[in-house]
């Protein structure tokens, strides 16, 4: 498993990255943590002539916690796990990050890489849809924002243009009612099914609910209908089952070595029930 040759660039300014991307088009790729891209390069499934390393771009780093939370794209999963402010403001991030890959991968793997890569197996895209995050993209024509819920088009196909890079992720500070529930075969595996749930309550009833599912389609699935089914309920069985039914109508899993479609749907329903129950218990 040996990658093909390429030229290596390590610019220290964002503008230099954009310039390189503009110059080399689809022959160039940026690398953040590299834990999606490098394995693909080693299998020679990703071919590129120019590799642009983002590690020296200071503006891609940093976590800001306020009413809005802003996380630089180069923030690693390890940093998400160990950031005290984030643990208080949006504990669902650490709950999800903990279930991604293994310690070594989490030290290098970044939030930006995880969301921008477009791999349907990645956990953060679904979570970002759940949190209604916005992705800040910078390209030769400036900076724009795309909602996570609009970002994913198909497996590895996103709204990001080839000459743009993901700079940061922002989302409103979520409420306490959260859960990230993931079933996998072992440490290091992608989800058989995973559910991200955020609930808000008023008068002991759900006042707002957001539900997103991972690895159950070629894109993450934010199920508006599933969330809507919970609103106004106290997460009793009828409401939860309505949410589950709505979610099942929105996902489209395929068979792989984790199991057949019917199994994945069953697991999707189970993890969603568990996630709702846990999120409700935390509201």
């Amino acid at each position: 498993m040996i990658p093909a040759a390429f030229e290596y660039h390590r610019p220290s300014e964002l503008s230099a990255v954009i310039a390189l991307l503009s110059e080399h088009g689809d022959e160039a790729r940026v690398v953040a943590g590299g834990h999606s891209l490098i394995p693909m390069m080693k299998l020679r499934m990703a071919a590129l002539d120019h590799l642009i390393d983002l590690r020296d771009i200071a503006e891609l780093r940093g976590i800001e916690v306020g009413a809005t939370i802003r996380i630089g794209a180069m923030t690693t999963q390890h940093e998400l796990l160990t950031h005290a402010g984030l643990a208080e403001a949006a504990p669902i991030l650490a709950e999800a990050a903990r279930q991604i890959a293994d310690p070594q991968v989490r030290y290098l793997g970044t939030l930006g890489g995880n969301v921008a890569n477009g791999d349907p197996g990645n956990d953060m895209p679904g979570l970002m849809q759940c949190l209604d995050a916005r992705f800040t993209l910078t390209g030769p024509d400036g900076t724009r924002e795309v909602a996570a819920r609009d970002f994913y088009e198909a497996a590895y196909m996103t709204a990001r243009e080839d000459d743009e890079i993901l700079v940061a992720i922002t989302f409103p500070r979520p409420g306490a009612g959260h859960a990230y529930e993931k079933q996998k075969r072992k440490i290091g595996d992608y989800a058989t099914a995973a559910a991200a749930v955020q609930l808000e309550a008023a008068d002991s009833k759900v006042s707002a609910a957001s539900i997103a599912m991972t690895n159950l389609s070629d894109v993450p699935v934010w199920s508006a209908a599933a969330g809507a089914a919970l609103v106004g309920s106290a997460c009793g069985t009828p409401a939860v089952e309505a949410a589950v039914a709505a979610m099942l109508a929105d996902i489209d899993p395929v068979e792989d070595s984790r199991g057949p479609v019917e199994f994945k749907k069953h697991v999707a329903a189970t993890v969603l029930r568990r996630a709702i129950a846990r999120a409700w218990s935390r509201v």
Binding site: Y8, G34, H35, I38, P39, K42, L51, H78, P103, Q104, V105, Y107, L108
Partner: peptide
């Protein structure tokens, strides 16, 4: 950081 050096250039 502990890293897997097979996946770092």
């Amino acid at each position: 950081k502990s890293v897997k050096s097979c996946t770092v250039f």
